[in-house]
C-alpha cells in the first residue's frame, strides 16, 4: 500500500515537472507586451505571471521528485528485507468504473444537445446507479462471504440484484423503462401545462398564463405520473432486484427535479433534444 502511494507520488512529481515545463515553454511563446503608458519599460509584462508560476512549479516539482525518489529507494531496501503480499485485487473493476464514468461523462456532454437533457440525464444516471450499485453489492457479497463462514447468509434481494445485473438484457430493459417513464412524465406535464397556458390566454387570465402556475402544474402532473408508476411497480413486484428497484425511480426522479429547478424555475436553456416536438 505504502509502495503504491510512493509510486503514485513519484508519478505525481514527474507530471508536475512536465506541466511546469510546458507552462514555461508556453510563457515564452506569449507576446511580451507592456502596459499602456509604460515607455520606460518598468512593467514586468504579460509573461511575468505564467513564467513565474511555471518556474515555481518546476522547482517545487524537482524538489518533490528528489524527495520521492529517496523515499522509494528507502522503501525498496526495506522491502528486500521483508517482502509484503501484493495488493490490487478488485482494482480492475474499480478502474473500469473510473474509465466508464469519465467516458460516460464525455459522451453525455457530446450528446446533450441531440438527445436532450431529460432522456440523456435519466439514462446516464440509470447506468451510473446500476453499475455503482452492482459494485456495491459485489463488495457486500464479498463481505458476507467472509461472514458466512461465521454463520451469516446473503440476503435474497442482494442475490437477486447480482443475478439481474449479470444479464445485459436486464440492464438494457431497465434503461429503456427509465427513459420511457421520464418521457411520459414530461409529455403529460408539458401537455397539461401548455393547454392551461393557452386557456389562460384565451380567457385573459394572467394567473393561469403565468410561469409560476405552469411550473406548479408541470410539477404536479409529472409527480403524479411518477408516483403512480412507482406505486404500480411496487404493488406488482415488477422490480426484480434491489438495484433495479432503486436505479429507475432514482434516475427518473433526479432528472425531473433538476429539470424543474434549472429549466422551469431558473430558466436555464437545458436542451430538450428528441423531446422537443
Amino acid at each position: 500500500m505504502a509502495q503504491e502511494r510512493d509510486r503514485k507520488s513519484l508519478w505525481g512529481a514527474g507530471g508536475m515537472i512536465l506541466v511546469a515545463s510546458l507552462l514555461i515553454f508556453y510563457a515564452f511563446t506569449l507576446e511580451q507586451r507592456r502596459m499602456i503608458g509604460d515607455e520606460a519599460g518598468h512593467d514586468p509584462g504579460s509573461r511575468a505571471l505564467p513564467l513565474g508560476s511555471g518556474l515555481v512549479m518546476l522547482i517545487a516539482g524537482l524538489y518533490d521528485l528528489g524527495k520521492q525518489r529517496r523515499t522509494v529507494q528507502k522503501f525498496r531496501t526495506q522491502q528486500e528485507k521483508s517482502p509484503s503480499p501484493s495488493a490490487g485485487q478488485g482494482t480492475h473493476s474499480k478502474r473500469m468504473l473510473f474509465w466508464g464514468t469519465l467516458f460516460g461523462s464525455i459522451l453525455y456532454l457530446l450528446l446533450l444537445e441531440r438527445v436532450g437533457f431529460l432522456i440523456l440525464t435519466t439514462l446516464f444516471l440509470y447506468l451510473l446507479f446500476f453499475f455503482y450499485g452492482r459494485e456495491s453489492v459485489k463488495g457486500k457479497r464479498a463481505e458476507k462471504r467472509r461472514g458466512s463462514e461465521q454463520g451469516l447468509s446473503l440476503k435474497s434481494d442482494d442475490r437477486a440484484a447480482l443475478e439481474a445485473s449479470a444479464t445485459s438484457v436486464g440492464m438494457i430493459t431497465g434503461g429503456i423503462l427509465a427513459c420511457l417513464l421520464v418521457a411520459i412524465c414530461y409529455g403529460i406535464g408539458r401537455i397539461v401545462s401548455r393547454e392551461l397556458f393557452y386557456y389562460g390566454r384565451a380567457v385573459g387570465s394572467a394567473v393561469l398564463a403565468s410561469r409560476a402556475v405552469s411550473t406548479v402544474v408541470f410539477l404536479l402532473c409529472s409527480a403524479g405520473v411518477y408516483g403512480g408508476a412507482l406505486f404500480l411497480g411496487q404493488k406488482t413486484s415488477f422490480w426484480k432486484s434491489k438495484t433495479m428497484k432503486w436505479s429507475i425511480p432514482l434516475s427518473v426522479g433526479t432528472a425531473l427535479v433538476l429539470f424543474l429547478v434549472f429549466r422551469m424555475v431558473f430558466r436555464v436553456a437545458l436542451p430538450l433534444g428528441i423531446l422537443d416536438l
Partner: peptide, 11 residues
C-alpha cells in the same frame, strides 16, 4: 449508500 450518492453528485 455511496452508490446512490455519487451519481447524483456527478450530475
Amino acid at each position: 449508500p455511496l452508490s446512490y450518492l455519487l451519481p447524483i453528485v456527478l450530475i
